[in-house]
Design a binder for these strands. Structure first.
Lengths: 237, 237
DNA sequence: CCGTAAGGACGGAAGAGCACACCTTTTCTT
DNA sequence: AAGAAAAGGTGTGCTCTTCCGTCCTTACGG
């Protein structure tokens, strides 16, 4: 009955430095539009306290993001660090990203279906109203994928926030970041977006009814759609 | 429509050292029984290569686990590092563990339901036969919670392995580790274990039929059972 | 015109991790 | 019986990351 030693137990230990993680966190937040263009970040001395890192380390990340054009800094009393008005476009996905696209989809599936199940139990109607509004925003941007995608991300992350679980919010944000890297540069016909957005309505409807199984199932089908699109385009990768 | 800056974006960055993560990985693997008593670990020089850390760092972790009684080391040509025959019992959960029990359950829910959905699509019958055998093992240990729990863990992790996704396997292992810390020291009447094990059968049945929604739903209900037990016992925490 | 709040810059201290060389113990092979 | 081999055990010094503290520069506001 004893299985042999599972390989994954001895998989490489991640060694991401604080600088790298900070850079990644802020960078994806900007790319996802969670930090809006023109928005002001907390002051460095406050932000490094919130992130529980030293100011030097934080500044490494901020400096890198300024140089890459994601942020711009303004000195002086009324200054601060601001998200660029026109952040640079998402980079093309790395070979490593493409190689792991299926794993990324799987991870996203787990997080999002779990979020849907829990949100159905816990979401406040007021929050759901805000998410419904996002469906309307997306409906108005079927021809403008970047704008559509930004509302899309806000919807999914907003649903995660509705669960009240910080872990799930973080996991959802990370999953959305990975997905954005994968899909930012591929064509999205308006018909596809429209049908995807119809699924958003079904998900929110089930969540509002408190029907967790239906919400989970609707989310599952929603994500399978994305997965099939990717499978078609990346078949060789 | 612009939400204010999401709090979770500026949450503390995790700063876990390679030593800490190695210690945790191997320690939980032993506590969960994924590394069986008496089992021999790969040689240090090989293991540090697999974990992508230096031998010094690996030895820090191994030394700590030897001192805590989880491992014992044997010198000489036929030597090695072995899992203790009688590893020390799980520690009582820390206040931090108890405070976050609901978050831990949520995370587990997402991972496990996702695993069930994906396993229904991908699991090989041969693998499912092995998992069915574990249900039989559990049925024979309704009076012996440690033994029951060990087979339980192997079942859940085995289902994750059936998805073929390393991320999910790792996430599932971690979630099971957290759950074990929470539930190791509470009473588990045989009737509760029997009903829990019946749910295992339902899950595996749905997976075998390739009925993903049913598998996901069965898993969801299975986990809600555990959650209700915990909610009753930890209500004040 | 000065205080204050913001970003910007430097320099040293501490610790984690690593590479490498070497030692000790035991067993296997010749 | 001798020596090679394979394993854990030990020590040293270097590099890189991070942190802390201090100071500088800019610019708004009274």
């Amino acid at each position: 009955m004893q299985s042999p030693a599972p390989d994954v137990l001895f998989a490489p230990v991640r060694s991401q430095t604080a600088f790298e993680e900070t850079l990644e966190r802020l960078g994806t937040a900007i790319n996802l539009g969670l930090l809006a263009p023109g928005e002001r970040l907390p002051a460095e001395r406050e932000l490094c306290a919130r992130l529980a890192i030293s100011r030097s380390t934080l500044r490494q990340a901020l400096t890198a993001l300024v140089q890459s054009g994601h942020l711009h800094a303004v000195r002086g009393r009324a200054g601060g660090t601001f998200v660029a008005d026109r952040p640079p476009p998402a980079e093309i996905p790395s070979p490593a990203d493409l190689a792991g696209w299926r794993d990324a989809c799987d991870g996203r599936l787990a997080v999002e279906v779990g979020v849907a199940l829990l949100a159905a139990d816990r979401a406040e109607p007021a929050v759901l109203d805000r998410l419904d509004a996002l469906v309307g925003v997306m409906a108005g941007h079927l021809e403008d994928f970047p704008a559509y995608r930004q509302a899309d991300v806000r919807l999914h992350v907003g649903l995660a926030e509705a669960t009240g679980n910080p872990r799930l919010i973080a996991a959802c944000t990370e999953a959305q970041g990975e997905m954005t890297r994968l899909i930012a540069h591929i064509a999205h016909p308006p018909e596809v977006l429209a049908s995807s957005n119809a699924q958003h309505e079904r998900i929110l409807g089930a969540v509002r009814r408190g029907d967790a199984p239906a919400a989970g199932r609707a989310m599952w089908e929603h994500l399978r759609g994305t997965e099939h699109v990717l499978a078609g385009l990346l078949r060789g990768a």
